[in-house]
């Protein structure tokens, strides 16, 4: 199984360092949820792990090989990335969007291989897209669009999936649907790392929880024993009791 890890990783934009000195090891086949307040560096960490943002220091390793040594297309076959903003060409239909997931495998003229067709069919099943396969992207609801783009990421059929806030701005039905899709991926042996804001969904679905604050991983709960109350208060400035959250009175922290 392919293993993703990071050693003393620092990264950011321009001269600004957003995440610093992060070391981690993603256990293959697990659903790892990254939580932390806005600006804590979740997106930056995900982009750096995906190789989309160069590390300022340290390395992202795939099976002990530095990510930056890999050819772009080789990397693309190992790590699928689901972006936070849901962009696609409005007039493209769902099937055409799913085919884009096979881009790392296609040549300049290339047709989709048999393996590619299988991967697309599986993505259609896993993300439950068969009912609107030929509808243009612009005619789908927000939840359907999110599922289509998730399907696009699944169609890559990479051993590692990095999903940046995949349930943001979705209604509860689609939030759960998306989490179920991610969980099912891990049951097929894929490693999934995702950033979430919803702490109760995090505790419900995560195999492992990484808590980020101010550019560092401050807590690593490898068995998801639940987030300690003091940590939640300190990092998120809220109370959480039995999955219910409530505000802390201003000034009491």
């Amino acid at each position: 199984m392919i293993r993703l890890s990071a050693k003393n990783l620092s990264s950011g934009y321009g001269d600004k360092e957003i995440i610093s000195n992060i070391s981690l090891d993603a256990k293959p086949g697990s659903l790892i949820v990254l939580v932390g307040p806005n600006g804590s560096g979740k997106s930056t960490l995900i982009k750096t792990l995906a190789g989309l943002l160069p590390a300022k220091q340290g390395d992202v390793l795939i099976d002990d090989q530095p990510l930056q040594n890999l050819d772009l297309r080789v990397r693309a076959k190992q790590i699928a990335y689901l972006a936070q903003d849901r962009q696609a060409m409005p007039s493209m239909n769902v099937r055409q969007i799913l085919e884009l997931g096979r881009a790392p495998y296609r040549g300049r003229l290339g047709q989709i291989s048999h393996m590619g067709e299988v991967a697309i069919m599986q993505a259609i099943n896993y993300a439950d897209l068969k009912n609107f396969l030929h509808r243009p992207f612009s005619q789908l609801s927000g939840g359907e669009q999110a599922r289509v783009l998730m399907g696009r990421a699944l169609a890559v059929d990479a051993p590692i999936l990095l999903a940046d806030e995949p349930i943001a701005a979705l209604d509860p039905y689609y939030q759960l649907a998306m989490m179920e899709i991610l969980k099912a991926e891990t049951s097929r042996g894929k490693t999934v790392i995702t950033a979430l804001h919803d702490l109760s969904l995090t505790e419900k679905y995560a195999d492992e929880i990484w808590v980020m604050d101010k550019g560092k991983v401050v807590f690593n709960d490898v068995n998801n024993n639940g987030l300690p109350a003091e940590l939640v208060e300190q990092v998120f400035k809220i109370h959480m009791i039995d999955g219910r959250i409530s505000p802390i009175k201003v000034g009491s922290v």
Binding site: K47, A50, G51, L52, L72, R73, R75, A76, K77, I79, A80, Y81, L82, A83, Q87, L100, G101, A103, P104, V156
Partner: peptide
């Protein structure tokens, strides 16, 4: 970003 993740 997504295009880059697909090897572009």
């Amino acid at each position: 970003l997504t295009a880059q993740s697909l090897g572009v």
